[in-house]
Simulated scan of single mutants.
Amino acid sequence: MPHSPSRTAGRAAVLGSPIAHSLSPVLHRAAYAELGLDGWTYDRYEVTEQGIPGFLAGLDDRWAGLSLTMPLKRAVLPLLDEVSGTAASVEAVNTVVFTEDGRRKGDNTDIPGMVAALAERGITRVETATVLGAGATASSALAALARICDGEVTAYVRGQERAREMRGWGERLGMRVRTDDWSRAAEGLRAPLVVATTPAGATDGLAHAVPAPGGTLFDVLYDPWPTPLAAAWNGAVVGGLDLLVHQAVLQVEQMTGCRPAPLAAMREAGEAELRARAG
Rank of each mutant, 00 (worst) to 15 (best):
S140M: 12
W169P: 00
G113L: 11
A92V: 10
A155K: 07
P224A: 07
G239S: 14
L173H: 11
A200Q: 14
L217A: 01
I19S: 02
T8W: 05
P25E: 03
A117T: 12
G279Q: 12
L68I: 04
L189N: 00
W63D: 08
A278Y: 07
V220S: 08
V210Y: 01
L15D: 03
V153Q: 04
T48A: 04
V249D: 06
A146Q: 08
G205R: 08
D150G: 12
S67M: 04
A134C: 08
D107I: 12
G135Y: 10
E46M: 02
V115K: 09
D180G: 09
A134Q: 08
R162Y: 02
D219K: 05
E273H: 11
G122N: 06
R74H: 12
Q254V: 00
V252Y: 03
G174I: 04
A75G: 09
M166T: 09
L118R: 07
E187P: 00
V47H: 03
E187D: 15
P228D: 07
A200D: 14
L145V: 09
R162K: 15
A231W: 02
E82F: 12
L118P: 04
G235L: 00
T124D: 09
R275L: 15
R164Y: 00
G174Q: 07
A163T: 06
L59V: 02
R190D: 08
R178A: 15
D101L: 07
E120M: 06
V195R: 01
D223Q: 10
M114A: 11
V83C: 11
F218N: 09
A207I: 02
V76D: 06
A269L: 14
T69N: 05
S89G: 06
R172T: 08
V220L: 14
T197E: 03
E46C: 03
I52S: 02
H28D: 09
P213S: 08
N108E: 13
A87F: 14
L243Y: 13
R147E: 15
A13F: 12
V249W: 03
A264T: 14
P112N: 13
A232S: 13
L27P: 10
A191E: 13
A202Q: 11
V238I: 10
T95L: 15
